[in-house]
Computed example of a mutant assay.
Amino acid sequence: MNRDHHATELARQLTHVKRPNPVLRLYHWRYEILAVTLLPYAVVNAVLALGLIWSLVALVVAFNWVFYWRAARRHVRGRLRAIVVQHRLRTGFAGARICTVDGRRPAILWTRPVDGDVMVWLFCPAGIGFEQIHAGRAALAAACFTTEVYVDRHPKYAALITLTICTTAIRREPGRAASPGEVVPLRAHS
């Protein structure tokens, strides 16, 4: 059994990670595509409906509303961070070889900001499990430009994994450092 595990890991390390098909690639870049297409459309329609001066006034008011209102600024920053984390995780999965033997990576189902962190729900295809993702936490943290990634399995479905990407600094007790063998408690549970 141990020899089979080593053969599977060797095959995974030698396999090329599959590139997404064009439709999936469009889905991965959906936020950016919508921003590039809908924002100019909205600006043109605002200029046609309100005129140039009132459109500029509305744009300045909207920008100031987001810039000065703390809750709106936090929401926009959290959503932008969640979008960046999606792209960085896909790169991290490829770099850490968290893939099946035929090169498929976990699918990101949803991301959302929660209290300064980013929660990510993954669907793992057959051949990827909790142990493989847990072992690659350091590489995923480095890919996401963060200090720690917590991994939690779904209580009912083994193919669903929850990642907590800690974007805030971890507060440690002074004089007590985590040893390498120490179990780190999860910050959030499914």
Results as ranks from 00 to 15, higher is better:
residue 91 T to K: 15
residue 88 R to Q: 15
residue 93 F to N: 11
residue 77 R to N: 10
residue 41 Y to K: 01
residue 6 H to M: 10
residue 69 W to L: 11
residue 10 L to Q: 12
residue 102 D to I: 13
residue 12 R to D: 04
residue 20 P to F: 06
residue 18 K to R: 09
residue 29 W to S: 00
residue 132 Q to A: 08
residue 177 A to G: 02
residue 144 C to K: 05
residue 105 R to V: 09
residue 189 H to W: 12
residue 155 P to D: 00
residue 153 R to K: 10
residue 153 R to P: 12
residue 36 V to P: 00
residue 28 H to S: 07
residue 80 L to G: 14
residue 25 R to D: 10
residue 172 R to T: 11
residue 70 R to Y: 02
residue 50 L to A: 08
residue 158 A to W: 03
residue 117 D to G: 10
residue 45 N to P: 01
residue 125 P to H: 12
residue 18 K to N: 10
residue 189 H to S: 13
residue 126 A to K: 14
residue 9 E to N: 08
residue 80 L to C: 15
residue 96 A to L: 06
residue 52 L to P: 03
residue 7 A to R: 15
residue 143 A to P: 00
residue 30 R to N: 05
residue 156 K to M: 01
residue 60 V to R: 02
residue 171 R to G: 02
residue 118 V to G: 07
residue 90 R to A: 14
residue 65 W to D: 13
residue 83 I to T: 13
residue 79 R to N: 10
residue 162 T to H: 08
residue 54 W to F: 10
residue 12 R to L: 04
residue 120 V to D: 02
residue 150 Y to I: 08
residue 163 L to G: 09
residue 75 H to M: 09
residue 155 P to Y: 01
residue 138 A to H: 11
residue 78 G to H: 11
residue 116 G to M: 08
residue 66 V to W: 03
residue 124 C to F: 05
residue 107 A to N: 05
residue 143 A to L: 06
residue 64 N to C: 09
residue 118 V to Y: 04
residue 111 T to R: 06
residue 156 K to Y: 03
residue 102 D to F: 08
residue 26 L to N: 07
residue 11 A to E: 13
residue 28 H to D: 10
residue 113 P to R: 14
residue 37 T to E: 00
residue 114 V to Y: 14
residue 62 A to I: 00
residue 10 L to E: 11
residue 32 E to G: 06
residue 150 Y to L: 05
residue 8 T to L: 12
residue 92 G to L: 05
residue 2 N to C: 08
residue 104 R to Y: 11
residue 112 R to W: 03
residue 98 I to G: 06
residue 149 V to Q: 00
residue 90 R to D: 14
residue 42 A to C: 07
residue 145 F to K: 09
residue 108 I to Q: 12
residue 135 A to S: 07
residue 62 A to K: 01
residue 171 R to A: 09
residue 78 G to P: 01
residue 3 R to E: 14
residue 144 C to T: 07
residue 8 T to D: 09
residue 28 H to R: 14
residue 125 P to M: 12
residue 112 R to V: 09
residue 10 L to N: 12
residue 24 L to D: 10
residue 151 V to Y: 11
residue 30 R to Q: 06
